[in-house]
Design a protein around this nucleic acid. Structure first.
Lengths: 154, 154
DNA sequence: TGATTTGCAACAATTGATGTTGCGTGATAG
DNA sequence: CTATCACGCAACATCAATTGTTGCAAATCA
């Protein structure tokens, strides 16, 4: 498998959702993510169960934010999508008989747990509102250069 | 794919190689790793090219260490196996047009680069001799409990 | 009633490490 | 000199998890 993009995709969609008035359909989200509405529903299901978004069926239905962006941290979404595996490297056998292999695993696990703890801590410090603010800056900067027109979607 | 165990496997085998007098055949290494000699040769090829091991063909041939364990860091082996991808999570599109997605990517990349830098730093601080010393402690501890007999392979 | 939209199950596609087979090459023993 | 051993390498199969896709049921609203 290549990279697991579920977290990135959800962050992306949630910020768009915040800027949209009215619910966002899975169809629209899928277009933004260049994927399939089913993939959107499947991934978003975790966010709904965790209370970060709501879904409505039928006419005028779709997805809406259940909390403001400043009340959602990246870490919250990471957990809501099921805390996917962070590392693609790891031990051959997590609980080996061989004492050499046990020593190798212990050494690697210590280093990786430290790195993981740092990453988790970082994800807990950044809110989606901060990412949205970064977007606003990028948008304003592009406007200033004349590279894009005001009000032409992002 | 599940976990990429090439680094762990090579660390494991290199320490065994150090404790063995005479070359280690790919066949023996494969038994230790519960895999195939071809997998061993394929993965070990990088270590040979980087100068950490030597390989000899024919009768009495096999693999031997080219440096003492205290002159090999985990980081060296990580690089010798081709610096495999560390994270299994990542952006949907590494260079998106969408400014929202750019902001998301920037935020995630910053956190992940910090974690990666910490991991790399840790891997650069641990030598294989240190892991071997940890093994020796585990071995002595098991001997003391009477759980194993002296000189019965590990 | 019909159109819209989510919910969900089932299955195919994709990707990269890993597993496997086969053959060539070099080295050593006898 | 021949047989055996062991690496080198190419080619292909296997596996696992996300992603992609199809189909159908259920709910909502005009």
């Amino acid at each position: 498998m290549q990279l697991d993009a579920r977290l990135s995709r959800m962050l992306h969609i949630l910020i768009h959702m915040d800027r949209l008035d009215g619910p966002m359909t899975s169809e629209l989200a899928a277009q933004m993510l260049r994927t399939n509405p089913v993939v959107v529903r499947r991934t978003m299901a975790g966010l709904r169960d965790a209370g970060y978004v709501r879904s409505e069926k039928g006419h005028g239905g779709g997805w809406t934010l259940a909390r403001p962006l400043d009340a959602i941290r990246i870490l919250d979404i990471y957990r809501a999508v099921g805390e996917p595996r962070i590392f693609s490297i790891g031990p051959a056998d997590p609980d080996p008989q061989c004492l050499v292999e046990q020593a190798v695993n212990a050494s690697m696990a210590a280093a990786m747990q430290e790195a993981e703890a740092m990453l988790i801590a970082r994800l807990g410090q950044v809110t989606l509102a901060q990412i949205a603010a970064d977007f606003d800056q990028r948008y304003a900067a592009l406007l200033a250069t004349g590279a894009i027109e005001p009000l032409t979607g992002h």
